[in-house]
C-alpha cells in the first residue's frame, strides 16, 4: 500500500497510525496490550496522552513501565517495572475474565466489516495450502471480556476483507445484538485505527464506517484499500496531525 497523499507533517503513515492509536487511549485506565503495533501505541500513550495508563501484558505483568519498546510480551523489563507479576492462569481468569480491564488493544491479520478478526489461517488460492498464521493467543477472550476493544492495523484490501477466511475472534459477529446473544460482555471493538484514518461501528448496524481520515488522505484511497463497500460517516473528520512532541516521543521510544 503506497500512500501518495501530500505530506502535511514530516511523518510516515505508520507514525500517523501509531500516534492516533495512542490518542485513543486518552480515557483509558487499564489496557491489555497485544505485542507489535498495539504495544507501540500503548507505550506512546504513557509518554503523551495518558502517563498513568496501566499496561497489562499477557505474560503476567500488571502495570509495566518499560523505558523502551519490548520485543516480546515477556521481555524482562516488563516484569522488572511492573506493579505486580501474576501467573498466566491468574491473568486470564482473575483479571481478564472477571472484567477488570477497561481496554483490550489488538492487531489483526484480517478484519471484516463487523470488526471480527482472523489470525489463524488465510486462503491462498485453489490448489494451494492455507497459509498458517500464529493463531488466537489471548485475543478471543480479550475481545470478549475487556470493557471495549481498540484495533490497530494497516489499511489494505489484504487486511480489510469482505469475508474472513477463519473467525478467530468475534468483534460484532454478524451485526447488532450478536454480542449479547453470544454472551460477550464487553462493548467489543469501538474504534479501528489505520494508516489512512479511523473507522467506528455504526451504532445502528454495528458495521464499521469511515469516520476520520488522516491529513491528506482521500475517501477514495480508503475505499480502494477496503475489501467491502466501505460506508462513510455523514461528516468525515480529519485527524489532527501529530505534534512535534508526539513524534519526538514515538521516535525516542523506537530508538531506545
Amino acid at each position: 500500500m503506497t500512500t501518495t497523499a501530500p505530506r502535511t507533517c514530516d511523518c510516515t503513515p505508520d507514525e500517523l497510525m501509531t500516534v492516533n492509536a495512542a490518542r485513543a487511549l486518552a480515557g483509558a485506565r487499564t489496557c491489555f496490550v497485544g505485542i507489535g503495533l498495539p504495544s507501540t501505541a500503548a507505550n506512546l500513550a504513557r509518554h503523551t496522552v495518558r502517563p498513568d495508563l496501566v499496561l497489562i501484558y499477557e505474560s503476567g505483568t500488571l502495570g509495566s513501565k518499560p523505558t523502551r519498546l519490548p520485543l516480546s510480551i515477556g521481555d524482562g523489563e516488563l516484569a522488572d517495572t511492573a506493579d505486580a507479576v501474576v501467573s498466566v492462569p491468574e491473568m486470564f481468569n482473575y483479571w481478564l475474565q472477571a472484567g477488570r480491564i477497561d481496554v483490550g488493544f489488538l492487531g489483526a491479520a484480517q478484519l471484516d466489516r463487523y470488526a471480527n478478526i482472523n489470525t489463524t489461517v488465510v486462503d491462498r488460492g485453489p490448489g494451494k495450502p492455507q497459509g498458517r498464521l500464529p493463531g488466537a493467543g489471548g485475543a478471543p477472550e480479550i475481545a470478549a471480556n475487556c470493557g471495549e476493544v481498540l484495533i490497530v492495523l494497516r489499511h489494505s484490501i489484504r487486511n480489510f476483507v469482505r469475508r474472513l477466511d477463519f473467525t478467530t475472534t468475534v468483534g460484532h459477529g454478524s451485526g447488532p445484538g450478536d454480542r449479547q446473544r453470544l454472551g460477550l460482555r464487553g462493548k467489543g471493538p469501538t474504534v479501528v485505527i489505520t494508516d489512512l484514518g479511523v473507522l467506528r461501528p455504526d451504532p445502528a448496524t454495528a458495521e464499521l464506517v469511515l469516520t476520520e481520515l488522516h491529513p491528506g488522505v482521500t475517501v477514495e484511497q480508503a475505499r480502494a484499500a477496503t475489501g467491502w463497500e466501505l460506508k462513510t460517516a455523514d461528516a468525515i473528520g480529519t485527524t489532527t496531525a501529530p505534534t512535534p512532541a508526539e513524534l519526538a516521543a514515538l521516535r525516542a521510544l523506537k530508538a531506545a
Binding site: M91, F92, N93, P140, E141, A144, T169, V170, L182, G183
Partner: peptide, 22 residues
C-alpha cells in the same frame, strides 16, 4: 491455561467464559 489448571487439579475439565463465536 485452564486446561493445565484442570490437569493440575485432578479434574477432567475446566470451565471458562471463552471461545464464544470463535
Amino acid at each position: 491455561a485452564n486446561r493445565y489448571v484442570a490437569g493440575a487439579s485432578g479434574l477432567p475439565f475446566a470451565v471458562l467464559r471463552g471461545y464464544r463465536g470463535s
